[in-house]
Simulated assay, not measured.
Amino acid sequence: MTLQQDLTENKTSKISKLRSIQSHLKATGAPVVIDSIGINLLIISKLASRYGNDVYLRPRGGFWGEFKDRYQGGTTFQDSLHVSRIRHIRDRVVGEADHIIPVSHFHKTQIKYTYPTIDKPITPIYEPYNEESIAQATSNDSLREDWGIGSESPLLLSITGFNYRSKGTGVVDFARGINTVLSEWEDSYYVVAGGGQYREEIEEKFRGQIDPDVYDRVLFPGFLSPIAPVYAAADIYLHLSFRDTLGLTVIEAQRSGLPVVVNTGGGMPEVINTSSEGNGVVRTNSELEDHLMALVADKSRQEATGEENEEWAQACFHPAKIAADFEDVLLTS
């Protein structure tokens, strides 16, 4: 039995759903996978524990202490109450779990650091890409035309969310390195796709770090859907956030046949095909510059890396493979 945090805001509907779940738990004894953390899922996990159902916790977000950043409160007091409440709920859900299934080994390290005395099994299982929405395409000239980018112009792509400020810091921190590449390759472009309330703020900070003569070749188009054509329009994918426990877009980009460059933060280095020299893990702007300058100049290397990445991603992150990993944990633990 897998439960997602899809209970509506209607209290009557919530009560009805919770009663239905309670009856099912009591009658079947089936294991429960808690997919996220929240008050409703805390209630479900406690019900599962009461009736002897095994509880598997699948936390997705990192243990960054970022709750304050995400809260849109008005006063410091309100903010502190919100932070305390959310952390209390998270601690209770973790406490109720019999087994924790984080999304990466980095995520596991975060959990063990946050809860140093934890003694329950922790088994990382990566996220799969969506086979239906991520499909390999050889080109997407129409999207490039919409952006005013020629079919032969090198296009660097990042996809991120801007729902809290810290999410975009990586893009800003690596702005000078990207600026150098854009300045050297005068027909190159950098596109940062993604929506969120802090998008304009991050864009302003990024533009404050680059030279005016490359302004027109940096685009922040906002949220884009479907996502497959966006990957198909790009030549190289960059994931520069320091705040991701996994970096699902890194997996999607490789499945889409792109070379990828990530920074050393979070779980991204775990999900990159390190056997291909076209991919890169960088720590500084100078490392980013060196890697991109060589990669942009070598189209055949880009294509070879993309082909290797597509095959590697299918072997490691195909939905059927991840489902088998979950089945193994649920049946053997």
Rank of each mutant, 00 (worst) to 15 (best):
S36G: 12
V55L: 11
E287Y: 07
I236V: 14
I322E: 07
V214F: 07
N309F: 04
I111P: 11
L219H: 11
I159R: 03
L246Y: 03
E289I: 13
Y129G: 11
E96V: 13
G208V: 07
N285F: 09
I202K: 07
H88E: 03
A253N: 02
R87D: 02
D216G: 02
G195R: 15
S80K: 13
R70Y: 10
G161V: 03
E96Y: 04
I272V: 15
E131K: 02
V192A: 14
E9H: 00
G168W: 05
L3S: 01
V261I: 15
L47V: 09
T12W: 07
G222E: 11
P116A: 13
Q5P: 00
G194P: 14
T249F: 10
K17W: 05
E308N: 08
I236G: 01
V94D: 00
S183F: 07
D187H: 15
I134N: 06
R87G: 04
A97M: 04
V281H: 05
T245P: 00
G195N: 15
V172Y: 05
Y129E: 11
E9S: 01
I21M: 04
G52D: 06
K11S: 01
I43H: 09
G266Q: 09
L240V: 02
E203T: 02
G306M: 04
V83W: 06
P121W: 09
T245D: 00
L288N: 04
T245V: 11
G265H: 13
D298C: 01
R283A: 15
I100V: 15
D235W: 06
P128H: 13
D98I: 05
L288A: 05
H24W: 03
D146Q: 10
E303A: 11
W185S: 06
T12P: 00
N273C: 14
T76V: 07
A320H: 13
L248E: 02
V172N: 01
E308Y: 05
I44L: 10
A232K: 11
A294N: 11
P102K: 03
A137T: 12
H24C: 04
D298S: 01
G196P: 14
I202E: 08
W312Y: 09
T245L: 01
T28M: 06
R58C: 13
D290G: 12
S23K: 14
D216F: 06
A135D: 02
E152R: 15
L219C: 03
L41A: 10
I122E: 08
E277A: 06
S142N: 12
D173T: 05
N10M: 00
V281P: 04
Y71R: 10
S276F: 07
L42P: 01
T75D: 12
F223R: 13
T180R: 04
V230P: 00
V329N: 09
D235Y: 07
D79L: 15
R87Q: 12
G306P: 03
R165M: 08
E277V: 06
H24S: 05
K120E: 12
I210S: 04
D98M: 09
N273L: 14
S49Y: 00
